[in-house]
Design a protein around this nucleic acid. Structure first.
Lengths: 176, 176, 176, 176
DNA sequence: TTTT
DNA sequence: TTTT
């Protein structure tokens, strides 16, 4: 029903492994931090000045499952989503606003590494490798709760699919 | 030099008149608040539930001049820019992060109203109409300073151009 | 399932009324010609040199119905779709290739005129106004058949909906 | 001066090595064929049905030089450009229309392979490797002349740059 | 704070 | 063939 357009397109690399959580009804929600590089040459010195922009990305549904399973720290990825700003309260009770790129059923994701992030070893490394909570970046310090944090749990996998099943058009059940 | 892609595309309406400022060297910097509407029909009630996302947009250069001159509260506009998160300090000395859509020389703007925002009266209303300082919004409450706030002044026009001079292409020498 | 990205974004005006047809099973297929203007100022003469690019656009499903009902010659529209090249045979039996922008269930459309194309008169003019067969254009002269031309008919409306029902995310049944 | 938007975004792989030519004044013009994959699962059989769309891409300027030097058959690439349809005459003197994605100074290119297409060996393979004329694809058979074919030559390099010099931003004076 |  |  949108009477507007709200579109974000990013190509960048993950700053850390995805943070996967699950809604009470078992839907995956994945938080990513994606760096887009815009290093530029200083016109005085001719030096290459590094300039990195960090983006908080939240994924839902089937895309989230694939992302959680196959993306890893350093993975290069294309994502298409929309801008959304959430309000939450820090421990001092102050309103804080966090802007995220939301990738839902209307969004898209493409893994841009040779074949998945780590050559198929995704499933092996996964069991041990998901518990990081690490540096959320982008809006750090008093870092915001993950999107829709109410009652997530971080372990229960929604199902044990083993094939990648590339995503981006799909029939999903998460209401946005 | 970018080794990444960082692109935002919005079509929406201005929540208020543009806030135009000038750098010490006379370059225009315009702040906009753009609403993108994503109202949706509730699947229970069938009611249309309004859902609006607000975006802080900062424009620079020639695009900023055109925007400041022709856009007004309510104007519908297409913009293409990039995501950028700035850190600033609120009066309590706490770090606050504000994410904006930056429209610079690589960005684009298209006015989508019939002919300018207000039927050609833009130039007339402009002389009187620029002095608003108004609510910068989007990440309100302890609202962030406008982008690159150091030493702006809000009156000195960089020059007295009177024709719109549509922007987004630039003087080029490659023949197409 | 795409392992790639194929995306087109256009904002332009219709060169003529939409050409609406229906598949045997009643699904709407709409062909549009959209002009994107890129007029530029000649650097010698300072003259504004008109330069228009014409795009063949094919829409399917609910988007097609809305487009056929509300867009008219001159309407300004935002569309998002994908590139597709079809092969067909001209009357001399030679292969001809036609590239179109396909707007399907993954695409998007936004009408950018004040309120629909013609101020609400859409529904009145529609009953009488759909029978144009007119010049399909863009790759003219031995012009290509409309997309999926096999067995369309141009009259049977798929249903008599009267409200606009804005589109762009939807549950559709046309297989792409 | 554009009063419209005409934007194409592709991520895909080269069907063959780039075809590099030079204008009389030494500017590079590169033609690419890029495949975007949209394989889908057949809903009857459950089989994965391959579906590939081929795109003719024409690049100019510095982007063209980088593309010609570093991209190779199979390279994965992100490009952003605009749609353009050219008219030319086949040997029977008939008008033929060819639609291409033009990547000029307003466009963008990103190489998405690990480090260039072939791990830095680009320069070695280049001297021997540019003379292909091969299958132009997309609008094959009576294939169109390369864009702006008048008087190209395929050998003279515009200069012997050796570093990649990533492109898509340009020397700017606005500080970001 | 906008728009329909 | 549109628009400004």
């Amino acid at each position: 029903m949108a009477r507007g357009v709200n579109k974000v397109i990013l190509i960048g690399n993950l700053g850390q492994d995805p943070d996967t959580r699950y809604t009470p009804n078992g839907n995956a929600v994945v938080n990513l931090n994606i760096a887009t590089d815009e290093s530029y040459k200083d016109r005085q010195t001719g030096q290459l000045v590094p300039k990195t922009e960090w983006h908080r990305v939240v994924m839902f549904g089937k895309i989230a499952e694939v992302a959680g399973q196959y993306l890893r720290k350093g993975s290069k990825v294309y994502i298409e989503g929309k801008l959304q700003t959430r309000k939450w309260q820090n421990k001092e009770g102050q309103d804080v606003y966090t802007t995220e790129v939301v990738v839902d059923i209307n969004g898209q994701m493409q893994m841009l590494d040779s074949r998945g992030s780590d050559g198929g070893g995704a499933s092996q490394s996964a069991p041990a490798g998901r518990p990081q909570q690490s540096t959320p970046a982008a809006q750090p310090q008093n870092s915001p709760p993950p999107a829709q944090s109410s009652g997530y749990n971080q372990s229960q996998p929604s199902q044990g699919s083993s094939m990648p099943e590339p995503v981006d058009d799909f029939d999903d059940d998460i209401p946005f």
